[in-house]
Amino acid sequence: MGQKVHPIGFRLGVYRNWDARWYADKDYTKLLHEDLAMRRLIGSRLRNAGLARIETERSANQLTIIIQTAKPGIVIGKQGASVDALRDELERISGKKVRVTIHEIKTPELDAKLVAENVASQLEKRIAFRRAMKQAIMRTMRAGAKGVKVQVSGRLGGSEMSRREWDRDGRVPLHTLRANIDYGTTEARTTFGRIGVQVWLYKGDFVTATGEPILPGGAVQAPQPEEAPAEAAEPVAAVAAAPEAEAEAAAEPAEVEAPVATADAPVEVPEEEAAAAAAVEPGETEEEPEPEEDIDTDEDLVGALDLPDTEPAGTTKLGSTKRKPPAGRKPAPGRAKKVPEPEAELPEEEE
């Protein structure tokens, strides 16, 4: 019928190790049945502990059993009572000293056996098989898997004839030998009969001992040296001299530029200096600079500009009027402001 290869058996000895790591020449049949009996005992006693994998190792007088579980607290029990009882039964079956080692699985969503048991437990609770499959796939992909495929077969939904349904997300390359594909299967016991659950989980490609990925041609990708950033090529001497230059600049007092007064922006005198200037005694007056001569009259303005006398005959010259100082210039201290006299209205001449 179907020519499907077991994903774990397909990779044994190449990328994956055996679960039973021991060798026997004459007593192989006896030790094999003994191993199977111990696996059935552990599976029945720890049915709800989330068992993912059971590994066995044999030496001359000792048997080591490695249990990988998602719930180590159930396996150990209160103060180690459960694991001690399990060890005693295993020693009775094998007749040798048994050492039990428990490994915790921190991400059960990335283990195919545990995902299959989760789907089977939902089917036993009468949850729709499509909903159980989609929820398991969603959680597995969210945990970081690159692909997952779930298949259920049996009397789905209580139908008269059994059928097979499957769902997949991501990619599951079953023919790629270097692909790390985990496979798990279990059965759900329902009122309509048993429903088989199979899970293929693609975690990525296997890597070599150095941790480098394997290329499609079989070669190993060599690590590329990291390039130093261009900014790090600064000479060491310049970096060492930078703190000294900053210290010298901090030791020297900063020169403050004196403000320059302009016509548009006069210099504001602080209140403390103005109070000190007012407190000077009358006999100790400072010399005042001579004010610049202002061109006050219209005649002086005309003389300064050398304009010709173009006044028509018969006109009367108006009285000299003072020109207003610029808005930005302040009157000299000690000099009172002169109020310009109003211009006299001239009588109209009769023609």
Rank of each mutant, 00 (worst) to 15 (best):
V14S: 09
D35M: 02
R45A: 03
R45E: 03
R47G: 13
I54L: 15
T56S: 00
N61T: 12
T64L: 14
I66E: 08
I66R: 02
I66W: 02
Q68D: 03
P72N: 06
G73H: 00
K106I: 05
L114C: 06
E117Q: 06
E117W: 05
R131L: 08
A143R: 06
A145P: 10
G147S: 05
V148P: 03
G158S: 14
R168Y: 09
R171P: 03
D182L: 02
R189S: 11
L201F: 02
Y202I: 03
F206D: 03
P213N: 07
I214T: 00
L215P: 01
V220Y: 10
A222L: 03
A230M: 04
A232Y: 13
A245Y: 10
A250R: 06
A251N: 07
E255T: 10
V256G: 00
T262L: 05
A265N: 15
V267Q: 11
E268R: 11
E271H: 07
E273D: 09
E273F: 15
A275W: 06
A276S: 05
V280L: 13
E286R: 14
P289V: 09
D296V: 13
D298A: 11
L301F: 12
D306M: 12
L307F: 07
T310S: 13
G314L: 00
T315L: 12
P340M: 02
E341W: 15
A344W: 14
E351C: 00
